[in-house]
Amino acid sequence: MIKNISNLGDAALYCDFGNEVNKSINSQVIKYFKTIKEKKLEGINNLTPSYNKLIISYDLRKTNFKEVKKFIENINIENSEKTKSKKLEIPVCCQKNFSMDIKRLEEILKLSREKILKNFFNKEYFCYMTGFIAGMPFLGDLDKNMRAQRLETPRVKVPKGSVAVTEQFANIYTFESPGGWNILGNTPLDVFDSSKEEKPNLINPGDTVIFKEITLDEYNNFNE
């Protein structure tokens, strides 16, 4: 449930669900997000769900903080339909050229390459949110022994498709962008496709993801 609603500037509502990061709080955020989105309230521009916050930005020409707050406080989440979520399998190739930070991870985590990959692939992930760059999924949770900080100096260019980890999360760089996460591999799958106006994102908040290791040959032949 929303613990507190405040204003973020003069054109957004900041709904705070607490400070913890877990599936149950995030599911609440996603429920609110989906319900509000369906109601299509005049004046609301954007909804940004994250681990434990929901930011609702609005057009100050059409509505204001008081009105949107009232609307959110009176919304009935229980009655909303159960939201659909998908289960997806993402192929990842961890060949040397792709797993750019595996050495760094071996040193930080004090685990062998084999062990790191085994831990990484042997797991089901939950999509908490998408964003930062278009379509990038934030997936959790990695085991405690797999958690590393981001790079001290972020890369200027992370290749498209890079699959990376930091702290308790994994993500996928949907296109070339700057970034500081530890790169383990690369997926040949298009996780964000801007030509699909309806559903550009393959992975959406609430979805479950498993990664499947593929060989370089499988990677190269993937799109054929």
Binding site: L8, G9, A11, T48, S50, K53, I55, S57, G131, F138
Partner: peptide
């Protein structure tokens, strides 16, 4: 913990220098 942004938000990273989010800002 990463959360949504809107344009006009002033973030202060560890180096203590403010950054104002403008129209093409990262969403989180």
């Amino acid at each position: 913990k990463s959360e949504g942004l809107i344009k006009g938000v002033i973030q202060v990273p560890a180096d203590g220098n403010p950054i104002i989010m403008l129209s093409d800002h990262g969403t989180i």
